[in-house]
């Protein structure tokens, strides 16, 4: 597969690899994809008291495009509030990385990972508020 320099750089020196504490109420976690399909992304965000994403980490089982897409999107979401983070579209990721058509699903998966992590964070917060009440 012929990849762009952007993909190769992110594959060789991927940023934001790792995990955050899943039990932390301020952390949202998502796992998207399936091993049987050859792509799994686990993505986590940490939200600060101002509602902004202060940290994001990922782990990926997949090809270069999956790794690069996750590394890029975890970089982009940091410092953004949840609405802004939701507005990052797979098209932006694919364009930035010049992904070949056959690899577009990797950027779709990365977008899905962010939105599911936000959902997870929000549902955790909702449950927390219920408990307080």
């Amino acid at each position: 597969m012929k990849y762009s320099k952007e993909v190769m750089d992110l594959y060789q020196n991927p940023k934001n690899i790792g995990s955050l504490d899943e039990n932390d109420a301020n952390v949202g976690t998502s796992v998207v994809g399936a091993p049987s399909c050859g792509d799994v992304i686990k993505l986590q965000i940490k939200v600060d008291e101002n509602g902004c994403i202060s940290d994001a980490k990922f782990k990926a089982f997949g090809c270069g495009a999956a790794i690069a897409s996750s590394a890029l999107i975890t970089d982009w979401v940091q410092g953004k509030n949840l609405e802004e983070a939701k507005n990052i579209k797979n098209k932006d990721v694919a364009e930035h990385l010049s992904l070949p058509p056959v690899k577009l699903h990797c950027s779709v998966l990365a977008e899905e990972a962010v939105s599911k992590a936000i959902e997870d964070y929000q549902s955790k917060q909702k449950n927390l508020n219920k408990k307080i009440i």
Partner: peptide
């Protein structure tokens, strides 16, 4: 780990993979 991911880590070696990611059909 995924096959194409391995191959990308050793671009100076020509091998092939049975992974979907290295095929056009997915």
């Amino acid at each position: 780990v995924e096959g194409e991911g391995i191959m990308l880590g050793m671009r100076d070696i020509c091998v092939s993979s049975g992974s979907a990611c290295s095929s056009q059909t997915l």
